[in-house]
Lab assay of single mutants.
Amino acid sequence: TFEVERIVRKKIVHGNTSYLVKWKNYSSKDNTWETEDDIRTKYGDLVDDFEK
């Protein structure tokens, strides 16, 4: 199971928000862009903290 360590960046393309996710126990080269809906479902607190 993958676990988010932190959110690195945010991008908005054509009105759709995605977050660059750093995965726990993986290197930064393994970071992936994930949709806001996918990340918010399980890691809403991390998204809220990133947006502060």
Rank of each mutant, 00 (worst) to 15 (best):
L46A: 07
Y19Q: 01
S18I: 15
K11G: 05
S28I: 09
N16L: 14
R9E: 12
G15C: 06
S28T: 12
S18M: 15
K22S: 05
E5Q: 05
N16K: 15
K11Q: 08
H14M: 12
D30E: 13
T41D: 12
I12A: 06
K10Q: 03
E34D: 01
W23V: 00
V4N: 00
E5W: 03
S18Y: 15
I12G: 05
Y19C: 01
E51R: 03
L46T: 06
D49I: 12
S18A: 08
R40P: 02
R40I: 09
E5C: 06
D48P: 02
I7C: 08
K42L: 15
G15V: 02
F50A: 02
H14W: 07
N31F: 14
T41W: 11
S18D: 02
F50M: 03
I12E: 07
V21L: 02
V47L: 14
I39Q: 00
K42R: 11
T17F: 04
S28V: 09
E5N: 02
D48R: 12
D49A: 14
T17S: 06
T17M: 05
E34G: 02
Y43A: 12
W23T: 01
E5K: 01
K52N: 09
N31W: 11
G44E: 08
K29L: 11
F50H: 02
E34H: 10
W23A: 01
Y19G: 00
D30V: 09
Y43M: 03
T41M: 12
K24A: 08
D49Y: 12
D45W: 13
T1Y: 12
E34Q: 09
E51D: 07
S28F: 11
I12T: 12
G15I: 04
T1K: 14
D38V: 12
R40L: 09
N31V: 09
W33N: 00
T41V: 14
D37I: 10
S28A: 13
G15L: 03
I39E: 00
T17W: 06
Y26P: 09
E3D: 08
T41L: 14
Y19I: 05
S28N: 13
T17R: 04
D30C: 15
Y43P: 01
K42W: 09
E36M: 05
N25F: 09
K42C: 12
T1G: 13
D49L: 11
Y43L: 04
S28W: 14
K22A: 06
K52H: 10
T32G: 02
S18R: 11
K42F: 10
E51W: 04
K11Y: 06
K42I: 10
K22F: 05
E34C: 14
T41E: 13
T1L: 12
K11C: 14
E51T: 04
K29C: 12
D30R: 14
D49W: 10
